[in-house]
Amino acid sequence: MNLFRLLGDLSHLASILVLLHKIQTSRSCRGISFKTQALYVAVFVARYLDLFWRYISLYNSAMKVFFIGSSCYILYLMKYRYRPTNDPSIDTFRIEYLLVPCAILSLIFNYNFMPTEILWSFSIFLESVAILPQLFMLQRTGEAEAITTHYLAALGIYRALYIPNWIYRYFTEGVIDPIAVTAGIVQTGLYLDFFYVYFTKVLQGQKFELPA
């Protein structure tokens, strides 16, 4: 464990707590893409089921349980408790355009052609693009509540911090994971436009608004 990865994980943890806080305090999931949240459940379940046969550390297991549990809970909140505040008519991204290519890529690029490793690859590829329905929704509505942008910023910073972690690990441990690194760079890249508006507007106290 190094500082970049620890801060990345904490940023990921924080993003989910911010999202839960937003939903609970406003009693609304307005502005949140159900499709993106459902994709995260698929990502976490596909990747973290190794919880049952591979023990790394208490930290590792606790985080995996938290990510699976919290993402399922968020889906429950959106689908049941705050269902009237969820507007599917603006959440129109076609997720089959993400699922099918990720499934194909995971069959081609994996570290071992076995179900668990293919699922791992699939989760890495899917995570890298899972934010697209959310960003697409943001693009459509053109604006977002500040708290929603804090959630997205924390989520983007998480994977961005994994990049220096991989560079650090390459030089200190000699390990390199080309699948995770490639997908991680793509994932971070998808946030660049968002980061630009977030850092130049929201953090200066202005409203998050995209140019028309």
Partner: peptide, 10 residues
């Protein structure tokens, strides 16, 4: 071994 990816990352 191609399966030697670091398995401690989340």
């Amino acid at each position: 071994n191609p399966a030697d990816r670091p398995k401690d990352e989340l």
